[in-house]
């Protein structure tokens, strides 16, 4: 059993898996968005539901403008996904314990079979990165053949979000274990990082100082979004470096 003091300790740790996003080289091409949808069986909600703001993405490219029209200047593109907070706002509000903190992988898990769809977690998420299945969205032929068998196909009334491609983490760990070694840095990566043509997204272990993601995080000026809320996010953004 996990005691309350242990939960507090895990929240103060730095996390296990992390990501560094270089906004200076991100072109906003949306390849990560497409790759994420393919990898994680994310449905296409169609234009009607999208108009209601029910579009489903686990990663999105945020754009902001500076200055008054017509002298507007666009700030660097900002890919935004679940920050896998060490002290997440979504977790304590779930009445069904469907979003829980993984002690083993230090990630925020969304347990689909527990979720009852109160949407409290999405309302409490300061990054607004959670997506809710408002319907059972049908896949037109032959798109149902494209499902990734390693990822659950979510049903209506279930909340979902970025998992840091936990299926890839498990696959890499399984392969490493079968070969009797540890998972090497850069051996695998998330779907978004794999698809990024500019290599703006780097994924890896933040608790290993020699990993690429740790070095990028410490070497260059990094920002963690809404860190002042005490969420302990595991995604670092670098720009103007």
């Amino acid at each position: 059993m996990i005691r309350p003091e242990e939960i507090k300790m895990s929240a103060e740790e730095t996390g296990k898996w992390g990501m560094v996003i270089d906004q200076d080289i991100c072109t906003g091409c949306q390849a990560c968005v497409a790759a994420c949808a393919m990898e994680n069986n994310i449905t296409f909600v169609g234009e009607v539901d999208s108009g209601y703001g029910r579009s489903m993405h686990w990663i999105r490219i945020e754009r902001f403008w500076e200055g008054e029209y017509p002298e507007v200047k666009m700030t660097p593109q900002q890919p935004m996904m679940c920050q896998q907070c060490g002290h997440a706002n979504c977790e304590p509000v779930c009445p069904a314990f469907a979003t829980v903190h993984s002690q083993a992988e230090q990630l925020n898990l969304q347990v689909y079979n527990r979720c009852v769809g109160t949407r409290y977690c999405a309302n409490n998420c300061p990054y607004q990165v959670r997506a809710f299945n408002w319907r059972d969205y049908q896949r037109p032929e032959p798109l149902q053949n494209q499902f990734n068998p390693d990822v659950t196909v979510r049903r209506m009334g279930v909340m979902e979000k970025c998992t840091f491609c936990i299926q890839r983490i498990h696959k890499a760990q399984d392969t490493a274990k079968s070969e009797g070694r540890e998972v090497r840095d850069g051996e695998f990566t998330t779907a978004c990082a794999q698809a990024c043509p500019a290599n703006a997204i780097v994924f890896g272990r933040v608790d290993q100082p020699e990993s690429l993601v740790s070095q990028l995080k410490h070497r260059r000026h990094g920002v963690k979004h809404l860190e002042e809320l005490g969420t302990l996010p595991n995604v670092t953004y670098i720009k103007g470096g």
């Binding site: 990630l107 347990v111 689909y112 079979n113």
Partner: peptide
């Protein structure tokens, strides 16, 4: 590891 939700559900 063996009782973690994320080991089987994702």
């Amino acid at each position: 590891k063996l009782s973690d939700c994320g080991t089987c559900h994702y």
